[in-house]
């Protein structure tokens, strides 16, 4: 399993992790090693197996439609890197991006 630089850059962008050009090749080698490990799964016959997304074979519990939370804005904003007028501030968002 080999990764191209372009693929690695795309993955890093999807994960929104900046990867400096000089560390690309070392990272690529590490990831390829891990991907090699995954090839062991090819030998397993899973044609008759259902995917297991969870160790619990239970149905989802639900809650009643009730408002249980009160306004804790001031408390929650204390951890904000940048806030003003009760809002979290970020660099200008261009409408429709994302």
């Amino acid at each position: 399993m080999s990764l191209s630089d372009q693929e690695l850059k795309e993955i890093a962008y999807l994960a929104r992790i900046n990867v400096k050009d000089e560390s690309l090749s070392a990272l690529k080698v590490e990831l390829e090693e891990i991907l090699k490990l995954f090839e062991e799964l090819n030998e397993a016959d899973t044609s008759e197996v259902d995917a297991m997304s969870h160790p619990l074979d239970l149905s989802q519990p639900v809650r009643k439609d009730e408002v249980t939370e009160k306004n804790e804005r001031e408390e929650l904003l204390k951890n904000a890197p940048s806030a003003k007028s009760g809002l979290f501030l970020v660099p200008k968002v261009i409408e429709g991006e994302g």
């Binding site: 995954f38 799964l41 397993a44 899973t46 197996v49 259902d50 995917a51 297991m52 997304s53 160790p55």
Partner: peptide, 13 residues
């Protein structure tokens, strides 16, 4: 990868 892994997870279980 992911789907195959989930199926193999079932085999282990």
């Amino acid at each position: 990868y992911y789907l195959k892994a989930q199926k193999c997870r079932q085999l282990v279980a």
